[in-house]
């Protein structure tokens, strides 16, 4: 068993699907932080068998839309004075901006520089998103 220090003030992302922690790390751009960030992989979980956890040793603004898109089952725990003061549960966001890019070569995003790639949730059950410009589907 590896011991990771508990944090005094910061954020713990819990219940990340095992193997997804690096995707979360990259999409939330956690590599650019100056504080300590711990990625704990394959932790035993009563609910899911295995899970990943990320601990961030600072209170930062988390893009909950990005996180909800990656995995709506992730829990965001806000830590103050070493204790969890708030638990945020996520849901699939209605819209995601610049998280995924449109793959349709006929879409205006394929030629126009610097425009936001915006996808809207089309079907919650099937977890499908559509590009707002060309309606091309993006399946999670």
């Amino acid at each position: 068993m590896i011991n990771i220090d508990s944090i005094e003030r910061g954020i713990v992302l819990d219940h990340i699907k095992a193997g997804n922690s690096m995707t979360v790390y990259k999409l939330l751009n956690l590599g650019s932080l100056n504080c300590s960030v711990a990625i704990i992989k394959n932790v035993k979980s009563n609910k899911t068998g295995r899970k990943d956890i990320i601990k961030i040793d600072e209170r930062i603004d988390i893009n909950l839309d990005v996180l909800g898109y990656i995995d709506p089952n992730i829990t965001v725990n806000i830590i103050e004075n070493g204790k969890t003061v708030e638990k945020r549960h996520l849901q699939l966001p209605k819209q995601i901006v610049n998280v995924v890019t449109c793959k349709n070569p006929r879409c205006i995003t394929s030629v126009e520089q610097e425009i936001d790639h915006i996808f809207r949730l089309a079907d919650e059950e099937k977890q499908t998103y559509r590009c707002i410009y060309c309606e091309h589907e993006h399946k999670k």
């Binding site: 879409c107 205006i108 030629v111 126009e112 425009i115 707002i132 410009y133 060309c134």
Partner: peptide
């Protein structure tokens, strides 16, 4: 009118 889809929306 534009050959790329979504150009008028943009």
């Amino acid at each position: 009118r534009h050959p790329k889809e979504g150009a008028p929306l943009l």
